[in-house]
Amino acid sequence: MLSTNARGFARAVFGPAARLLVRLGVSPDAVTVTGTVLTATAALTLLPAGHLTAGALVLGALVVADNLDGQMARLAGTESRWGAFLDSTMDRFADAAIFAGVGVWALRHLDGALGNLTAGLALVCLVLGSVVPYAKARAESLGMTANVGLAERADRIVVVLAAVLLAGLGLPTQVLTVALALLALASAYTVFQRMRTVYVQARGPHTAGTGAEDAR
Rank of each mutant, 00 (worst) to 15 (best):
L86C: 08
V160Q: 00
T197A: 15
Q201D: 06
L169R: 00
S187C: 12
R156D: 02
Y189I: 14
A106E: 09
A151M: 10
R108F: 09
A122T: 03
V124L: 15
F85L: 08
L107P: 11
G112M: 06
T89D: 08
L107I: 11
V200W: 00
V160L: 05
L128V: 05
A113S: 04
L114N: 09
A167E: 04
F93G: 01
L114A: 15
A179V: 01
A100R: 03
L121H: 09
V124N: 09
M90N: 07
N116L: 14
L114C: 08
V148L: 01
A113T: 07
L86W: 08
A167R: 03
G112S: 13
T190W: 09
M90L: 13
L75D: 15
G115K: 07
S141P: 04
A186L: 15
R108Q: 15
V160N: 00
V200E: 05
A146M: 00
Q174I: 14
A151F: 01
V191C: 14
L142K: 09
L126R: 01
K136P: 09
A151Q: 05
V131N: 07
L110N: 01
G77H: 02
W105G: 03
R81G: 14
R153E: 11
Q201V: 07
V102E: 06
A100I: 05
S80R: 01
T197Y: 08
G149L: 12
G77E: 03
G83E: 07
F192K: 13
D155A: 14
D155R: 13
L121T: 09
A202S: 15
M90W: 00
Q201H: 03
R194G: 12
E140T: 07
V164H: 05
A106P: 11
L128S: 04
G115P: 13
D155H: 14
T190L: 14
M90E: 00
V124F: 13
R196K: 07
A202H: 13
V191N: 13
R92H: 03
W105P: 02
Q201P: 01
V124W: 12
D111S: 15
N147P: 06
A146E: 02
M144S: 00
L185S: 11
L126S: 00
G143H: 10
E152F: 01
Y189L: 15
G170M: 09
V178P: 06
R81N: 14
W105S: 03
G168H: 08
S80I: 00
L86F: 11
L123G: 11
I157V: 05
A94N: 12
S130Y: 11
T118V: 02
D91G: 01
Q201Y: 06
S187G: 13
A119T: 13
N147C: 06
G120W: 12
L169W: 02
A179T: 01
I157L: 10
D91N: 04
D155K: 07
L180T: 04
